[in-house]
Nucleic acid binder design. Structure first.
Lengths: 147, 147
DNA sequence: TGACAGTGTTTGCCTAGGCAATTAATATCC
DNA sequence: GGATATTAATTGCCTAGGCAAACACTGTCA
């Protein structure tokens, strides 16, 4: 298999990286716009999502999944707590860790975020067959696997 | 064409957005690692690239292409100037604008960045046929077009 | 030509993430 | 059991981007 790009003909703005970057920007902007009424930031709704579906329940887990700085996470959680979205609960099992729980308020946010995401993705995937989406996913996963 | 995702079965971490996010992270990290010896940040090498291949020559153009805040751009250019990578040249044509030019130093950076990008992309695309890369590009472009 | 809108750049202020050091609690290993 | 390493969370400090206001200059249009 010959290499895809070579130095002579390389055009940065036409490379996969640029396309991926533009697609990501389109997604982020669309979601932000959709979630604007909830007054919640990009980093924040991802956390609500992860707590809401049980993928994480402590700051450390969130940091690991999101590859996010622990210090920044503490402050992000502070903000969500101040908003009344989540609460910190110390547990007996491990007294270092703080279990994070969505409040009733926060729990109401979860389905709204899911709905927004589904809507945005479906919109950005207009005209795609399921097979094409599957293929896109697969190609991206192969890139990540090569890292 | 039926919608791709539905609320019940939606798994955020398996959606296209997540895959795109992970691919982007893999690319950024690989490039940063490759360019670490140059002591230049993510935002900075993109600017050098755009100036180097003539895609932009003023701060305003850079902002437009990168969808980047003008204030932040001023300061980013300050840093690159202090590093001796570029210089600002006032021109008679439009006395508001400042033409940006790579210094001899900056010009030497350009091919090294291109080389790093080509290398990283080719590595992340190991095992891809040209057709597959083309398909990936196309699928991403279609998403962006739907935005 | 002169008022006015628009453009290019800069600055100040605010927010937020990264890094390093700290503290508290737990795990490990002898 | 006790020294040591590791882990979870927090804090302070630094850097950098977003927004809004300010300023200089250019373009437009009556």
């Amino acid at each position: 298999m010959q290499p895809i790009y070579d130095i002579e003909s390389f055009r940065p703005s036409q490379a996969v990286g640029a396309h991926i970057g533009r697609a990501r920007r389109a997604i982020v902007e669309a979601i932000n716009q959709e979630l604007a009424p909830l007054d919640i930031s990009h980093a924040q709704w991802i956390v609500v999502l992860l707590l809401g579906d049980g993928a994480a329940s402590t700051a450390a887990e969130l940091c690991k999944i999101l590859i996010y700085d622990p210090g920044a996470m503490t402050r992000l959680l502070d903000r969500l707590q101040k908003k009344g979205v989540l609460k910190r609960v110390r547990t007996k099992a491990d007294r270092r860790a703080v279990r994070l729980e969505l409040t009733a308020e926060g729990a109401k946010l979860y389905p709204r975020i899911v709905e927004a995401l589904v809507q945005v993705y479906n919109r950005l995937l207009r005209g795609f067959s399921r097979a094409e989406v599957q293929q896109l996913d697969d190609l991206l996963k192969r890139m990540v696997a090569n890292a």
